[in-house]
Amino acid sequence: MANSFYFINIIRFTLLVLLQVMVFNRLNFYGFINPMVYILFLYWFPIKENKSPFIIISFLLGFFIDFLSDSMAINTVATVSIAYLRPALMRFCFGVNYEFQNFKITSTAKLQQLTFLSLLILIHHIIFFSLEIFNLSYLLVILKKVIATSLATWLICLLVSSLFSVKKK
């Protein structure tokens, strides 16, 4: 059980990093939209796990993406931040339920899952593009990028997650 857990997460980690770097970073839809699918890793990661390893793993995830895409460390900053905020976001989306032992993300309402994913994406993108542009006089550009890329990321994440959905037992 424990082995398969590590196995699945390592595979997922590698595949998401490669998918992001090789495919989605080159998409340049409309010239600037590059969806960031690797956020799915944070969405999929089990809730029961300790929070500190989770933050470190998220740091590594962002780190690898940055390492491969010449983007300083802005992916790392954004990913670590949503990893840290994730428990708070879950409490917001799923209520106190999520702290119970038998809580499963797949057993919650579709709307709650969608809100959770959207919030993760939105916060990530706001941090990411603010740091990337790093200039408040380009506020409109930041907004445009956040909104357009969030929509694209959201759509792709939904497609990918429905493609590889966890089977209900």
Binding site: S52, I55, I56, F59, G62, F63, D66, F67, D70, S71, M72, A73, I74, T76, V77, V80, S81, A83, Y84, L131, F134
Partner: peptide, 26 residues
């Protein structure tokens, strides 16, 4: 832990903003 990791990442980001310092993340 979060503040520590954030600090590392921000340091790298701010360093890379100046010319020729982006030794690592390239």
């Amino acid at each position: 832990l979060y503040v520590f990791l954030l600090f590392i990442a921000l340091t790298i980001t701010i360093q890379s903003h100046s010319y020729h310092k982006s030794k690592f993340f390239n």
